[in-house]
């Protein structure tokens, strides 16, 4: 779909007709061709003229890619949209993996040079994960939300809790106890893994639902009606809780990879500086 000349419903991958993919692919092809043609005596390594060239390109790419963190926070400037920058960031980031590998001449060891390489790979892999999340999760989240926000869900859940207390008020103490426990011990979100899992195997409301269900057949008359209503309400709450937890998971997924991507970038830049310094020190 196109609106006012801007594509919508087109992912960042297809942006500007794959312009940045073509750019990155060109760069990679050139590098590979040069690597193929260039046959130094000591075998391919970072110390040849091609090695220095690829190293320089790689270092410049790293600086440019890291600059994205600054560029995205500088608003209302520049001729390109942030979307351009991100599209370039993705494709040139992947290209960097190949260029840096060629630069290394496949020489790895237990040293600061390989540390820089490993950190770079870590940054690129976490970025690739981030890209997958960005491509996949928004649609899942939209579908899960069904036109509600997390706040809406929370408000609905709070409303249901009240109704549940009311429905349980005519039933016996055991049910009352279950309902109260369910209300007080139910959690949405929580720690790192809990948020990412999007489920809660120990959900107090689910437990209450199962127990009330098991007990419901013992009630008769008006109590049976109340129990049936209670089960319905609990089931509705369980469903809403599941949805809210999924929303928390989606939110966490969209953020979590940055906790790897960004610190590793800082580490990479530090390692890269040492790498360059060391190389020139032992010239």
């Amino acid at each position: 779909m196109k609106l006012a000349g801007v594509s919508i419903h087109k992912s960042i991958i297809e942006y500007r007709g794959f312009f940045y993919l073509k750019l990155a692919a060109g760069l990679v092809l050139l590098s590979v061709a040069a690597y193929w043609v260039h046959q130094p005596l000591a075998g391919p390594n970072g110390g040849t003229w091609l090695g220095y060239t690829l190293g320089t390109i790689g270092a410049l790419l790293i600086v440019w890619l890291a600059w994205f963190g600054i560029r995205k926070r500088r608003y209302g400037v520049g001729r390109l949209l942030l979307e351009d920058w991100l599209s370039g960031h993705i494709y040139l980031g992947v290209a960097l993996l190949i260029i840096a590998t060629l630069h290394s001449g496949f020489q790895f060891g237990w040293n600061v040079h390989t540390l820089a390489y490993v950190l770079m790979v870590g940054v690129i892999v976490s970025g690739a994960f981030g890209l997958l999340v960005y491509l996949r999760v928004p649609a899942l989240r939209t579908e899960n939300r069904q036109n509600m926000s997390l706040d809406d869900m929370m408000a609905l859940i709070a409303g249901l809790s009240k109704e549940i207390y009311q429905a349980a008020s005519t039933l016996d103490d055991e049910v009352g106890q279950l309902v109260q426990e369910a209300d007080q011990r139910t959690r949405i979100g929580g720690g790192f893994w809990r948020q990412l899992s999007g489920t809660d195997p120990h959900c107090a409301t689910t437990r209450a639902l199962n127990k009330v269900r098991a007990r419901a057949e013992q009630f008769s008359g008006a109590d049976a009606d109340a129990a049936r209503q209670l089960v319905t309400l609990l089931a509705r709450k369980v469903e809403l809780l599941a949805r809210a937890r999924r929303d928390v998971r989606h939110h966490a997924l969209l953020k979590v990879w940055l906790y790897f991507h960004v610190p590793m970038t800082v580490g990479l830049i530090a390692a890269l500086l040492i790498h360059i310094f060391v190389v020139f020190l032992y010239w």
């Binding site: 801007v6 608003y75 949209l81 991100l86």
Partner: peptide, 17 residues
């Protein structure tokens, strides 16, 4: 260059129409 909100959207989700 126009609306900063649209220009700063990394994924092209924000559009003005």
């Amino acid at each position: 260059g126009g609306a900063a909100c649209v220009r700063a959207c990394p994924t092209g989700a924000a559009v003005r129409v």
